[in-house]
Design a protein around this nucleic acid. Structure first.
Length: 765
DNA sequence: ACATAACAGTTTTTT
DNA sequence: ACTGTTATGT
């Protein structure tokens, strides 16, 4: 960059008053409360540039932490643009990557770890928990590994070690023991989980004031993005690092706190204010993203949450289009409605990439994907099955990990018989026992077979040969490890392990998997100047969303969680029904309900121009279809901001539009579309399968829809009888478009929902 | 060792 | 409805 930014006015140009205040605030604790679309990333980056060019802070004394790689990269890119090489040495990264770097540098001061430690992801964690349960002779049916893991994770988020863990009840007592063994196993494997990266850094700082001091002196200024998402451990980490000058600049918005279930605690904002009473507090209230109408709707929604600091968000984008609320009959018609609307927006100058379709749960993407596929329209799917969690990729990472860190018994366990090479469960067990008896690690024991041919071993000839074969491969890889590039090593592994034979069985799925392997190979090959440990760390800490190409001009399908931090001209939020948003598991507790509302708020505030809110009349969950109630959150939006009428009117409209539903209810057993992968990885190659446009047949009553009824034929309390289900009592009956839906409690069959026109119910005395 | 059957568990998941 | 895991049989 030629242009100098030492010109103060140039640096502050285009900032509003509050933003400028934040950027130029005197060093010390600063809390910026930033509403959606208020330019917080801009403030953060300008602040860094300002510190360097105006306050003369050397860039290497500045640390900026984010939660996602994407946010970190975005910040780094903007800084590069702003100040280029004047920011050499600046630390910008995620909490986890930053901590990993510290720990890696400090392995000499870490008990039990050496510098080759690896990072375990959730799958690995589960394996470790299972092993811990096994060692404690605990039943993993009774103590589900996932539950145990969440208990352990919560503890780590709260900076609670196994010793500190309160065994307040039986389950907690078990969790404590599992946690304890779990940690020991991690150390034995020279591995840390994600939470350890944070917790161990804090523990290190507490145990070693000299080490802490080193980092305090290095990082004189700490800046934090998305502060409302920090957990206790992260908070404590920041607190220690920023002391004693407390030059800590945090940006957050408690109304966008949606990760409580992961340990995030927006009350850290209050804690911050108590901790640093002298902190300067700055509110960013001007929104540069949405129209007034959208903003008003969002504000009206969020105001229903108790105990919050109200921000007076405003925008210069007066007016705007009203928010449209629609009812669709079911999830299929919901998807059709979304697609129809997108197509009509195309005629009004929007492009497909301007649109986002959001939902509460990933499962909801399926109907949408099918609709897109059905119309041959491309779409971008965020999330779903992550590249790095695919089986084949995990296998290869496990191979690399074992070569890098043979102590990693979890990974060894994964690959020792993958592809199957005759090392079955029993052989593995006796290998383990043998190793334990000899005081070796399993990998060590294996290598003895390869390197000391005359070693005494307990295996049958057959098992020995299988083990020897694998051991020799492993030995070979270890030998070349330090000379070969990651790509070369991977190629060698693929070839010797005959991995392709195993994974590519010729089916579509096999080919896809092999394609994924090749994609991973090219990632590895591109990392040619990277050491194996660097490569593995990057792979562990990078999520798939970072690799998602933005180029494709297609609508984006994503969960509301994944939408945070993004913006789109047009936003659809689907599935606005009780039980979905708010989610059924979050309806009982006020705080959880408040978080659901924030989720809705986050969705709304992603929109620049248009918002479409959709709920369905009935929806299929876990294979069962049931009638839904519109989300209570819809009622939080003042009617004058919306079009589409109130709930009743919308419902009436659905009834009038009703066309095909009556025939759709019976699923034809023949056809099932397994809607898979978006991005184009997988195609349904059902060759020659006739396009199904024909409707399932209805035996009786055929054709012509009846006119909508005005009143229900059945009333609560009536006794009825059904040809198949026998006698029962009507619990409820309501009109559903051209038909009537009767809920009946049958004596023998339990409660059923029936369509009156097909059920042929007879009223009995 | 591999194929199959039974079975549990299905919110969100920055790292 | 669907998927992924584990117990069981061949």
């Amino acid at each position: 960059m030629m242009e100098t930014t030492s010109d103060r006015s140039a640096l502050l140009e285009g900032l509003n008053e509050a933003q400028r205040e934040a950027v130029t605030a005197e060093p010390g604790p600063i809390l910026v409360l930033a509403g959606p679309g208020s330019g917080k990333t801009r403030v953060l980056t300008q602040r860094i540039a300002y510190l360097v060019s105006e306050v003369q802070v050397p860039p290497w004394q500045i640390m900026a932490v984010t939660f996602t790689n994407k946010a970190a990269r975005e910040m780094a890119d903007r800084l590069e643009f702003l100040a280029g090489n004047r920011l050499r040495g600046l630390t910008v990264g995620t909490f986890h990557a930053t901590c990993a770097r510290v720990l890696r540098r400090e392995t000499d001061n870490l008990e039990g770890y050496d510098r080759d430690f690896v990072i375990f992801d959730r799958d690995d964690q589960l394996q470790v928990v299972k092993q811990a349960l096994a060692e404690l002779n605990l039943d993993d049916k009774k103590f589900q590994p996932a539950k145990m893991l969440s208990g352990i994770g919560n503890a780590k988020n709260e900076l609670v070690t196994p010793e500190m863990y309160a065994a307040s009840n039986y389950i907690a007592e078990v969790t404590k023991r599992v946690y304890d063994v779990y940690q020991q196993l991690l150390v034995a494997n020279n591995a840390m989980d994600f939470d350890d990266l944070l917790m161990n850094t804090v523990l290190l700082f507490d145990a070693r004031p000299d080490v802490l001091q080193k980092y305090q002196e290095r990082y004189r200024h700490v800046l934090v993005d998305e502060f409302q998402d920090t957990n206790t451990t992260q908070y404590e980490l920041l607190k220690r690092l920023a002391a004693p000058q407390n030059n800590i600049f945090v940006v957050g918005d408690s109304d966008q706190s949606i990760y409580k279930w992961r340990g995030a605690d927006f009350r850290n904002i209050n804690r911050f204010r108590q901790q640093y009473p002298e902190a300067e507090m700055i509110l960013l209230e001007q929104n540069y993203r949405s129209t007034q109408i959208i903003l008003d709707a969002a504000k009206a929604v969020i105001r229903h949450n108790a105990d919050r600091v109200d921000k007076e968000l405003f925008t210069e984008r007066r007016g705007g289009q009203q928010i449209e609320i629609h009812e669709a009959y079911n999830e299929k018609e919901e998807a059709d409605l979304v697609l129809d609307t997108i197509q009509s927006l195309m005629l009004k100058g929007y492009s497909p990439g301007d649109c986002a379709v959001m939902y509460r749960t990933n499962a909801q993407s399926r109907a949408l994907e099918e609709a897109f596929l059905g119309r041959g329209m491309p779409y971008r799917l965020v999330g779903a099955t992550r590249f790095y969690s695919r089986r084949e990729i995990k296998d290869l990472i496990a191979y690399l990990r074992v070569v890098h860190n043979p102590a990693d018994a979890i990974s060894l366990n994964r690959i020792i018989n993958t592809p199957t090479r005759g090392i079955g469960r029993k052989t593995q067990q006796s290998l383990q026992q043998w190793a334990r008896r000899k005081g070796w690690q399993p990998a060590e024991a294996l290598l003895k077979l390869a390197t000391e041919p005359e070693v005494q071993h307990p295996f049958s000839t057959r098992a020995y040969n299988a083990l020897l074969d694998f051991a020799q491969m492993l030995n070979a890889w270890l030998t070349v490890r330090d000379e070969a590039t990651v790509g070369e090593l991977l190629d060698l592994i693929l070839e010797q392990a005959q991995y392709r034979n195993y994974i590519d069985d010729g089916t579509d799925e096999g080919q896809d998997r092999w394609a994924n392997v090749m994609e991973f190979r090219s990632v590895a090959t591109l990392a040619e100047d990277m050491e194996l440990n660097e490569f593995l760390e990057q792979v562990a800490l990078v999520s798939e969303q970072d690799n998602l190409e933005e180029s494709q001009n297609a609508p984006t399908l994503l969960t509301l969680h994944a939408a945070k931090g993004l913006e789109f001209r047009v936003v659809f939020i689907t599935g606005l029904e009780e039980g979905i948003l708010p989610h059924s598991r979050s309806m009982d507790e006020m705080e959880e309900l408040a978080e659901e509302r924030r989720l809705f708020y986050v969705g709304l505030t992603r929109a620049q121009d248009r918002v479409f809110l959709i709920h369905t009349f009935r929806r299929t969950f876990y294979g069962e279809s049931s009638v839904g109630t519109p989300s209570r959150f819809l009622g939080n939006i003042p009617p004058e901001l919306t079009s589409g009428g109130d709930t009743r009117e919308r419902h009436q409209e659905t009834i009038e539009k009703a066309s095909s539903w009556r025939w759709e209810e019976s699923p034809s057993p023949s056809r099932r579309r397994s809607g898979r992968q978006g991005g184009g990885n997988r195609r349904g190659s059902s060759r020659g399968s006739g396009r199904v446009t024909s409707r399932p047949h209805r035996p009786a009553g055929e054709a012509k829809p009846e006119p909508a009824k005005k009143e229900t034929e059945f009333r609560t309390g009536q006794k009825v009888s059904h040809a198949k289900f026998g006698k029962g009592i009507v619990i409820e009956s309501k009109l559903t478009g051209s038909d009537e839906e009767v809920t009946v409690a049958f004596k023998s069959e339990g409660i059923k929902k029936l369509a009156a026109s097909f059920a042929n119910l007879k009223v009995i005395e």
